Amino acid sequence: MTQTVPLTRRALPVAAIIATVLMWASSFVLIRWSAGELSPGPLALLRLLAGAATLTILLLWVRRGRITLPTRAAIGLTALFGVIWFALYTLVFNLAGHYIDAGTIAMVVNLAPLMVGVGAVVFFKESFSPRLFLGMVVSLCGIGLITVAGSTGQLALAGLGIALVAAFLYAAGMLIQKVALRHTDPLTATWLACAAGTIALLPFLSATITEVQTTSTPVILGAIYMGIGPTALGFWFWGYAMNHFPTGKVAASTLAVPAVVVIMSGLTLGEIPPPLGILGGAITLTGVAIAQLRRPARPVRPAH
């Protein structure tokens, strides 16, 4: 009986990470699939509208009909990471889907955990370990191979550049979220961030209304699913995990996303990254994995 509670406390954050990885992987495929019918702005706005509505319902349910706003500092931080991660990242992410396959986008975007590691050194005063340096070198070699695939015409260089910008926005949002979670709970932070991201995308409202009239029902339903699953539930689960594990450990879990994306994309869209792109992506993710390895030096937080 005494071992059940600690085991449950460890199992729930792990389950949250697994569910998030699966939902986020599906969003890469759906964004690529939707690219032929919806432009990046309307797709992002539809997704965030569905996400904001879902999060509002969740918050009212969890808080039993009462919503209490956090401090001004918390609101400011959540709004900032909402605009960066929910609005700008989603917009750029959608744009990348118009140029390259879902698997390649996933491999490039998953440079973000490495960027988070560097950001943690700069902003959180964490030590710059040899593993982080080695991981950076290895990942840069992998990105070089992916770029070569682009220069040979196997991939669109514009798409690779856009995906790299998305990775920077992803990392920036994750770092700001970590600070925001010091001032408020994961669900409130995700709700406020999604609301801020939705407001930031309102300039696309007119285009969204126009495009929805000619968009097929499955694509619209896909956008709504991305708002409910990968955005609302996924970011809520992610924030919950961030409160139970170190930033780097949670970020490293996204290394599984590209593999899942490649499988999903191959089965549903018939798209697989070119061999040179897969090799470069594997090397890139290996570098990220190396950078995220930590010595088991602190016995405070049990690892198993």
Rank of each mutant, 00 (worst) to 15 (best):
F81L: 10
M107S: 08
L95I: 09
L88F: 13
Y99I: 07
L48H: 08
A106M: 03
R66P: 03
A44Y: 00
S26N: 02
V118K: 04
Y89S: 10
F81E: 09
L91D: 03
L111H: 03
A74E: 01
S26H: 04
A112I: 05
H98Y: 09
L12A: 14
F81R: 12
H98L: 11
T104Q: 09
L7A: 14
A120C: 01
P13R: 02
A35K: 02
R47F: 02
G97D: 10
L48N: 11
A19G: 15
A50I: 06
I31M: 15
A79M: 14
R72G: 14
G51D: 09
R72K: 11
S34L: 04
T56C: 11
I67N: 03
T8V: 12
I105R: 00
I18C: 12
A120G: 09
P40T: 08
W61Q: 11
I84C: 01
I57W: 08
P42H: 06
F28Y: 15
R64E: 10
L59W: 08
G82K: 12
W85Y: 15
R63F: 04
S26K: 06
H98F: 13
T104C: 08
L59H: 10
L46G: 09
A53P: 04
A50W: 06
T54G: 05
A74M: 03
Y99G: 06
R66A: 13
E37H: 07
I17A: 01
V108K: 00
D101W: 00
G97E: 05
A73R: 14
L91Y: 15
M115Q: 12
I100Y: 08
P6C: 07
A15P: 06
L91W: 13
G76P: 04
L111N: 11
F86E: 05
R47L: 02
F93A: 05
A87H: 12
V29I: 12
A79Q: 02
L12P: 00
